[in-house]
Amino acid sequence: MDRKILLGLLFFFSILKLAAQEKKSNFAIGFNYGFGSEFNNRNYTFTNNFYKAQLYYQVKKTSYFEFEILVQPEVNFGTHQLLNFYFVQPSEPDYLEKRERFTKLKDVHEYVLNLGFLVRKPIGGSCSFYVLGSVGPMINDTETERMSEGFAFADVFAVGFSVKVESFQFDVRPSIRHVSNAGFNDKNSGYNTRNIEFGVSYGL
């Protein structure tokens, strides 16, 4: 009798273990690298490259679409230069000094926490297309003629293509990015850039 109970318990725990292995988490973690530059503009140049950690959470899955929330801490390394010094108007205090300072090439670092929503369309068993919109607060460490130093926001609209290989998913993601401070600081012209990202994520 004891042997039958022991065998029954072993069988029961084996089934539980298999069921746990079959169950899939709604979370995935990943890492993206991207780069880009401003749209053709006669007033300034802005080039950037950035690194993003990615945390995905699948909210819902239907027969045709998957819906995900995405959290993206990001560090962005940019270079900026004013081309058209007339952008700094004579009405500004110390405008000559600002023209000289802003027309020099300078480094701009941005620290961002993007919060996004993603709609994915699976294609076959391993590929998918998606659209992604995100917005998040950021800290900008360098004053330019277009942006005050300090608090701002980053808005991103992206499309992407993914290929899944077992628990890994590989991404290519073109995007458009706008950065401004929503009027919280004096200078708020912001930057507009076109970017492309490459990433990999792992389903938990």
Rank of each mutant, 00 (worst) to 15 (best):
D2V: 15
L16N: 07
K17Y: 10
E22M: 03
K23E: 04
K24R: 06
I29H: 05
F31Q: 13
N32K: 13
G34H: 02
F35I: 01
G36H: 08
N40M: 04
N40A: 10
Y44N: 13
T45P: 09
F46V: 09
N48S: 12
N48W: 03
N49L: 01
F50V: 01
Y51F: 08
K52A: 03
A53G: 15
Y56N: 14
Y57L: 04
V59Y: 09
K61V: 00
Y64H: 06
F65R: 00
L70E: 14
P73W: 10
P73D: 05
P73I: 05
T79G: 00
H80S: 08
L83R: 09
Y86P: 04
E92I: 13
D94T: 05
D94S: 11
Y95W: 13
L96C: 00
E97A: 03
L105V: 00
V108M: 04
L113I: 13
L118I: 06
R120S: 06
I123E: 08
S126A: 13
S126M: 09
F129I: 12
F129V: 10
Y130I: 02
P137V: 02
I139P: 01
N140L: 15
N140A: 10
S148Q: 02
S148L: 04
F151T: 08
A152P: 09
A152N: 14
F153E: 00
A154K: 14
A154F: 06
D155V: 05
V159Q: 04
G160Q: 06
S162R: 12
F170Q: 13
V172M: 12
R173C: 07
P174L: 10
H178K: 09
G183A: 12
G183H: 11
F184A: 10
N188P: 09
I196T: 13
I196Y: 06
V200Y: 04
